[in-house]
């Protein structure tokens, strides 16, 4: 079956006072229908920018280049602003970070959900109210809380309300930007469960942006690993997390506790991501990579798809099986 969303060579460039910054650099991946794709990487790697670029809402200083970004076969980048606006929320919706002030503080939560139903969904006031109650029931909030203001909601409730809001017009694609990051672990589980259950029931496609590999393991079917604006590895979650082919993914695996098991020994990846104003010439991970060779510094590895759609951008991905045990040891990453 054709993928719902297919991104090819997407580049997002920010104009800054120090020069252009490529926050996303030729990123490519696909989102099949009815699947959850995790977009994972450190903060600043461009994962949030990808999600916003798909929605077509980026800061004034950003330019979306490259493409195509195909949504049901239509290239979003070539659409006019008018055509894009028609797609927003009806075809694709967005769930923002909890920590962000995503709900307008001066209106009741219910009114904000009704607003999109009336303005975009063409429903009457009373229909909108009924639908908002239905949506709150769906995400497990008492319908009476529709009359509360955002500041009266807890973090978890705000996030459920955001999910309800995203589902209002029955979109095919939902882009969730760190939906559980600011929540404590137990609430994280609850919110992810709500999201997963609704995704399965409504056959949604979801892009779940997160820095937390355990969230990917818990909630996703596929995963796309990004580093410094580029996609370094992608594939089915089982394949990628159990048999990572890129040293960065191996490192990420070490650096996070599992949602299921208690925090074992965490091994951080030393160093920090490169300055995107002036990225390194070869592999962008090479300066931090314990396995880097001369070629890694000189030449950028392409993203090569291998068995079962598992792709990696590493010159040494063929040796991955041999490198994996080394990557599990803390000493390898120390310098």
């Amino acid at each position: 079956m054709e993928d719902l969303l297919s991104i090819r060579d997407l580049t997002v460039r920010y104009r800054t006072s120090q020069g252009p910054v490529h926050a996303v650099d030729s990123a490519s991946f696909s989102v099949p229908r009815g699947e959850v794709v995790g977009l994972v990487g450190e903060s600043g790697c461009g994962k949030t920018t990808v999600a916003r670029a798909v929605m077509g809402v980026v800061p004034r200083t950003a330019d979306i280049l490259g493409g195509p970004v195909l949504f049901e076969g239509r290239d979003l980048i070539r659409l006019s602003e008018r055509e894009r606006r028609a797609l927003r929320w009806k075809e694709m919706a967005f769930i923002p970070q909890t920590a962000m002030n995503a709900l307008d503080p001066v209106y009741r939560v219910g009114r904000q959900i009704e607003e999109v139903l009336v303005e975009r969904g063409g429903r009457s006031r009373s229909q909108a109210r009924a639908r908002a109650e239905e949506l709150f029931a769906l995400v497990g909030i008492d319908a009476r809380r529709l009359d509360d203001y955002p500041h009266q909601f807890s973090g978890g409730m705000k996030q459920r309300a955001s999910i309800a809001m995203a589902l209002a017009l029955e979109p095919k694609l939902v882009l969730a930007d760190e939906p559980v990051t600011a929540l404590d672990v137990i609430v994280q589980r609850q919110v992810l469960d709500v999201l997963k259950e609704l995704q399965a029931r409504l056959r949604l496609s979801v892009v779940l942006v997160t820095h937390d590999i355990s969230v990917v393991a818990y909630a996703c079917d596929r995963v796309v690993v990004m580093y410094a604006g580029r996609v370094v590895e992608s594939g089915r979650v089982g394949d990628v997390l159990e048999r990572p082919r890129h040293p960065y993914t191996m490192g990420l695996n070490n650096a996070f506790p599992d949602l299921e098991r208690a925090a074992g020994e965490l091994v951080p990846i030393e160093g920090s991501p490169p300055n995107l104003l002036d990225p390194p010439k070869g592999c962008r991970f090479a300066p931090r990579c314990p396995f880097a060779e001369a070629r890694c510094v000189a030449e950028e590895p392409p993203l090569r798809t291998e068995v079962d759609g598992h792709a990696a951008a590493c010159w040494r991905s063929d040796e991955a099986a041999a490198l994996r045990p080394l990557a599990g040891e803390a000493a390898t990453w120390r310098r």
Partner: peptide, 25 residues
């Protein structure tokens, strides 16, 4: 503010965004 960006993501009209959300706040 993020809620103005969200209003944009929802595909609300520019008028609604500026008057109902930005100006009201």
């Amino acid at each position: 503010d993020e809620f103005v960006t969200m209003a944009r993501m929802k595909g609300l009209s520019e008028w609604t965004i500026v008057i109902r959300h930005a100006a009201r706040n």
